[in-house]
Design a protein around this nucleic acid. Structure first.
Lengths: 178, 178
DNA sequence: CTAATTTATTACCATAGGGTATTTTTTTAT
DNA sequence: ATAAAAAAATACCCTATGGTAATAAATTAG
């Protein structure tokens, strides 16, 4: 990136410290920001008609998170984005980012690469969900997020894997046996 | 888009008619193309260790399809992309597209919007998989692809929904009862 | 340090969906 | 039109995962 572009990015970037439990985006509200995680962990989830939570994403270091469904459609949030471990994030306003794209076309490339990476990751997630058992998905998960279990409750992970917390507990018990 | 950009796009776009059964991308081969569907239907799927197929995407009119996992990482295909109904597609070579981005930055915006739409769609797919029952997913599917059942075998749809063909058959039977 | 609260484990039974096999229906080929 | 092949439906039983509930462990608050 050119120095000017970088300067501009810095001018709209809002570095923030957020604490466990902080809500960055609340379901039902307008989504104006996207967040880049430099440390810690942020989670996005939805709540279904029965009040059950389903985790869409865990964002750790170097990942972006928001309610992308609402963000890209400039719509009301269906997701909640919550800090689950004290984190350092960089907040970007959607409108500010839009201007960057106009002023510095080099930034488009940047963003395109991020989006491409995101598509790849989502594609893999879907394929895993289709072809792996809960146990296999859990094993993969622990590799992808090596220390997430240290600070994330069981049921958050279960809700990401698409199983109940009891099932996850059983899988873990079975695993520790051998 | 400017006339020049449009002309350039046309110069690299390869319009093609493809027939049911044609393979556009073969698992294990290098992925150099992405396809835009103007009519018909193209399917992407993977084959797991047990030889079972899992459908990642059905691309109908106005959708893009490829093995995006391999395409964006310039890697070997893990997916197969297959024509399941006589279709008209426009084929784009990855390298040609890369040049477009360099020559016409306006095209980046275009591509960014496509990617954003893709991310939204994949996010929704994951959330549906997490919170809906097989029956609910099937009902949603028939709305999203109203006439796909006319030309797609049962087991392709089942493999997209993440259930067996027998389960899908049962769901359909139950539905036609009421 | 203790009590209160949250989280995880375990047990029990229920059920959605899977696997194998058979039959029926539909499609394709001759 | 008939045979062959493919696809769909159905049946039967099985298994992974879900739901409820009770217990145990860990964390947090006072």
């Amino acid at each position: 990136m050119s120095p000017e572009a970088e300067e501009y990015v810095n001018s709209i970037a809002k570095e923030k410290k957020v604490s466990k439990g902080d809500i960055l985006i609340r379901q039902g509200q307008r989504v104006e920001n996207t967040f880049y995680v430099t440390s810690g962990c942020i989670r996005s989830f939805c709540v279904d008609k029965n009040g059950k939570e389903h985790t869409l994403q865990f964002a750790i270091k170097n990942w972006w998170i928001s309610d992308f469904i609402a963000y890209y459609d400039t719509d009301i949030a269906t997701l909640t984005v919550e800090c689950i471990k004290d984190s350092n994030i960089i907040q970007f306003n959607a409108k500010d980012l839009d201007e960057i794209y106009l002023k510095f076309s080099e930034f488009e490339i940047f963003q395109r690469k991020i989006l491409e990476r995101h598509v790849v990751s989502l594609n893999k997630r879907i394929l895993n969900q289709l072809q792996l058992t809960a146990k296999e998905r859990y094993n993969l998960f622990t590799k992808q997020y090596p220390d997430i279990e240290l600070y994330t409750p069981n049921y958050h992970i279960a809700s990401y894997l698409g199983i109940t917390q009891q099932s996850l507990s059983r899988i873990r018990a079975e695993k520790s046996k051998t």
